[in-house]
Design a protein around this nucleic acid. Structure first.
Length: 482
RNA sequence: GGUGGGGUGGCCGAGUGGCGAGGCAGCGGCCUGCAAAGCCGUAUACGCGGGUUCGAUUCCCGUCCCCACCUCCA
């Protein structure tokens, strides 16, 4: 089976073939860095990270771009607010910052969150403010083609003319007539209320640093334009996949498509959208205030378990967070890890082997990760059965390692990752001494003493397991030690 | 009003016109000095009402409910 992907634009699963053999160009929308990330942002990144890994496992070279929107209304507003006399420092906004510093601080928070969950960095990560020239060129092409116009008032805005582009609405299969008018629609200098800004004229009171000269007056980029400008700059006028969260489908992606297509670019061949993360059934978002941060999750469970949770549902499904979900994910991850430490007691985790066909088929089927995980767990069970019979299971272990690589579950940095420091060294010696005492007690059939030692260790967060080759122990959430 | 996606066993979550994934939790068994881990077994699951069919959770019609987008949003 070859790779098939769901394309939002056609609403169908289609065979995927890249434009250029052997190479896939992928653009997906990153964050507007106006605040700290929540897990919804990270879920999207995990979804496209898994896509990238699967494409690479399938033999493609992947050229990936994820943008950073580092200027927008909210960034400017928050920065401006931080300079007012009534500014109250908060955890999110500890100090007064110029807009660019504020944006960069949050960009770093996003980077940290991605890194903490093993999301590999894209090939390029361009910022909107670094691509003003490309945006001007695109605006000029649109004006030239009769699809954009300077605002009819003196605002200095430049708008896309929705009525001039009859395909407008094709991505989300909506007609302009049926669209609900915004309740507080402000027509400004627009020909049609649905026309959207390509360029926003500089407003009095906004910092000079947040505007650039242009043929249409000083101003700054509109949100939708940047993605058109940057994706085609780095990937070409036509590229393979454009991704992002489902909430970006309209208006953001619809507008991108309109701009680029009206300018004559082929633009994206496939549109992929990940489902939302919900909390108690409701979309997680800043405006609702029901967000959970990656840090919140990492305080509850190991990074690998958090990543497993975020990746386990199909990427197009809604992912509902509820208490206990992370503990379930942790149990599933530990089951896999227990098998690996049984099957590979020497810790030979480089012995990666071929992927099972059932796993490949599942991933080829529009990245059916739930079915791929079923293949993974079946391999684990078969391996455990072999071990129970006294047979070798290194082959199954190698397959498990390969599957974990595709899912990105081996790239997640673990805080207790084995390398130690003096405190861990001391701990290892102390635990070993206790286990030796316990082994002596067991040999003497003094089970009362043996159990007392074990419960003392358990109470200290050290879990003890007896195996045919002696006792092994692990910290309550950490790597096993012989 | 428009557009798109859903309602699957205690929970999560795939999938399919007929042999009912997988995980987590529970119960029984094997193993263990006891545990843990592991293995085996186990459950009246497919919102509701019709229809098509030899047979529907899967197709069609109707109906109820939920979510997302139409405004900044991964």
């Amino acid at each position: 089976m070859a790779l098939r992907l769901y394309d939002t634009k056609t609403g169908a699963i289609r065979d995927f073939q890249p434009l250029e053999p052997g190479q896939v160009s992928l653009y997906y929308c990153g964050a507007t860095v106006q605040g700290r990330p929540h897990v919804g942002h990270v879920r999207s990144a995990v979804a496209f990270d898994i896509l990238t890994r699967w494409l690479e496992a399938s033999g493609y070279r992947v050229l990936s771009v994820r943008n950073v929107t580092d200027i927008d209304d909210k960034i400017l507003e928050k920065s401006a607010a931080s300079f007012r006399p009534d500014f109250q420092p908060q955890a999110d906004y500890p100090a007064a910052d110029p807009w660019f510093a504020l944006a960069y601080r949050f960009e770093q928070a996003f980077t940290s969150a991605y890194d903490a969950l093993g999301v590999r960095r894209p090939s390029y990560e361009p910022r909107a403010t670094g691509h003003i020239t490309e945006m001007h060129a695109l605006i000029a092409r649109l004006i030239e083609a009769g699809h954009a116009y300077p605002a009819l008032d003196d605002s200095g805005d430049v708008y896309f003319d929705v009525r001039s582009w009859e395909q407008y609405g094709e991505l989300t299969r909506q007609s302009v007539e049926d669209m609900q008018d915004a309740p507080d629609v402000d027509p400004r200098g627009k020909r049609d209320p649905r026309d959207f800004a390509l360029w926003k004229g500089h407003k009095p009171g906004e910092p000079d640093s947040a505007s650039w000269e242009s043929p249409w007056g000083r101003g700054r980029p509109g949100w939708h334009l940047e993605c058109s400008a940057m994706s085609t700059k780095y990937l070409g006028a036509t590229f393979d996949i454009h991704g992002g969260g489902l909430d970006l489908r309209f208006p953001h992606h619809e507008n991108e498509l309109a701009q680029s297509a009206a300018a004559g670019d082929g633009f994206a061949r496939f549109w992929m959208h990940n489902g939302m993360v919900t909390f108690a059934g409701e979309k997680m978002s800043k405006s609702v205030g029901n967000t959970i941060s990656p840090e919140d999750m990492l305080a509850q469970a190991r990074p690998t378990a958090v990543r497993y949770f975020l990746g386990q549902a199909h990427y197009r499904s809604q992912l509902d967070y509820r208490p206990g979900a992370l503990q379930e994910a942790e149990a599933a991850v530990e089951r896999i890890e227990n098998f690996l430490s049984r099957a590979l007691p020497q810790g030979d985790f480089a012995a990666v082997s071929e992927l099972p066909q059932s796993f490949r088929d599942a991933m080829d089927d529009d990245l059916n990760v739930p079915a791929a995980l079923a293949a993974l767990h079946e391999t684990v069970r078969a391996g455990n059965t072999a071990l129970d019979r006294g047979e070798d299971a290194s082959g199954a272990a190698g397959q498990v390692l390969a599957m974990l690589d595709v899912l990105g579950l081996r790239d997640v940095p673990e805080p207790d990752g084995g390398s130690g420091g003096p405190a861990l060294e001391a701990l290892i010696h102390l635990v070993q001494a206790q286990l030796e005492r316990r082994a002596e007690a067991k040999a003497a059939k003094d089970y009362a003493t043996a159990d007392a030692i074990r419960s003392t260790l358990t109470a200290a967060g050290v879990e003890v397991e007896d195996t045919p080759s002696g006792a092994s122990w692990s910290l309550r959430s950490g790597a096993a030690h012989g």
